[in-house]
Design a protein around this nucleic acid. Sequence first.
DNA 1: TGCGCTACGTA
DNA 2: CGTACGTAGCGCAG
Length: 593
Amino acid sequence: MTDDAGVSPAPVLPAEVLDGATAAPGAPLAVVVLPGRGVGLAAGGRRWSVPGPPADLLAAVERAVRPRWVWWSAHAAVGGLVPGVHLARCHDLAAVHRLLHGGVRDDAAAVWAAAAGLPEPAGGRRRAEALHGTGLLDLDGTGEAPLDAQGQLSPAWSDGRVLDDGAPPGEQLARAAEFAALALRAAQAQARAVAALPEHRGTPVGAPLPVQTAQAESAAALLAVELEAVGLPLDRRTAEGIVGAAVGPRPRDAADEVRLRAARDAPVTAEFGGPLDLRNPAQVLHALRGLGFDVPDTRAWRLERLAGAHPAVAALLRWRKAERLATTYGYGWLDRHVAGDGRLRGAWSSADAAAGRMTAQAGLHNLPAELRPAVAAEDGHVLVRADLGQVEPRVLAAVSRDAGLVAATTDDDLYAPVAAALAADRATAKIAVLAAMYGQTSGAAGEALRRMEEAYPTALAHLRAAEAAGREGRDVRTYGGRLLRLADAAASGADAAFAARGRFARNAVVQGAAAELFKAWAATVRAGLAGTGGRIVLCLHDELLLHVPTADAGAAVDLLHGALAQTAHRWAAGSGVRFVAEVAVVQRWSQAK
DNA sequence: TGCGCTACGTA
DNA sequence: CGTACGTAGCGCAG
């Protein structure tokens, strides 16, 4: 099939879509994108196949009617596209499915089955790569009905094969419209399920409506696609300078790399007094024991206290630090992930499987502090960094409505009033709060924890209830309504496994709710940046990094604060809980705080 | 080649 | 202290 995109006419949108009679502003409009070919649309019982450049079509519809876009996933719909226009509202079936049902599957077949009230289909997520080269799979894909006799979505539709199987363009566009119609039906079923979620236990007043969580999660899924497309501005020369200072010059070839590696190793092995593979933990352990150090493993935190006892230990720790930069964040990493435009790009997920935090690949979420000077604003721009202060204890106050802890959130430093309540110093108070939230098992905070129980009984009871659910294998929902699946995970297990599930659940109700607040905040900031040259370029659990034209810096600062106030008001209405953000305008990420 | 283990970076 | 994630090198099984 030849590509005739170069001579295709300007897209003609159906009048019903454009005039808004069928799709009123904010009304659901499902879209399935055929990259480079067109889109299928569905709304209000109608469907349309529209040939043309998908990015232009989406932009035209967005300008005309501002719908709530319904898609199987933002990644499938607009991944790889760069719509020249801000898409304001969406319902992401995969994201809402994860919210409603937890677990790891969010492929269209699993989403459809759950929405239709059918059992989870076999097969799991299909990887497109695995389908290529077999030849056979193309045969059963073409012409297959979307739903089988049980009402399950067929694999060929679920993985998108029927939209890219060499069938005539008109046929594929018709299928795209049919697939969009199915998406619309699934979204309606999800909306009913979201509306039917029970109120959050213990907080009948002022908890976020699950529909708000669904909207924020959908927006976060779209933001994840945008983050991947936009990238993090990285000053490559600074980055290479930092790497070079730690591990030496860039190797000229493979042999040079081997030589440089040996040169880095030699002085360290010499300290140990014999041949030794520093990259083999078993050998390092043996060598350390030979020096008289009886350690169970060779982890850095354990060796740090021994660094003064023998120069070999200090040399090993220095070597490890440099080696991390040489391997994980070295020249190879820069070459793989930093494009010619100076942007570091990696894949983003809007919700991990455990508690729903955002994740990112390509080192975006674990960039060593050492490399942060390399994250720099481009000419005419600044970075605006904002991070939520002490967000987890404040979230605990919101979700538990513990009166004492709520009162403590009015302080800029929450740990100050907590310390007063516990009659302890600030450091002890902080350890006690963290120990309560994370289920610490060893004893450093013992007495302070007991006093936490007296000072904040409602918060502690909330955490204990979550832990009990985890131990007993009962599912739990976060404050915003996300299902934390604990039942199947606890099906088999020893005592240690039950304890692990308990600690996980205790932590997940706080970490998960914090993730929901963060994403709602990020979605509000994203909306506020629409139409400006500013972009969110990094999300880091409790921190947002914006890249904005210098002239817009002040507005961005106001936006970050205003969006937090607005989000917190909706998210913890009437609770009295105060959330705070520290915001700084900088040229380099390292300059903030 | 795939997987578990060890180790370590971030929050 | 604890949870979560992604990445890399090694040894071992297939």
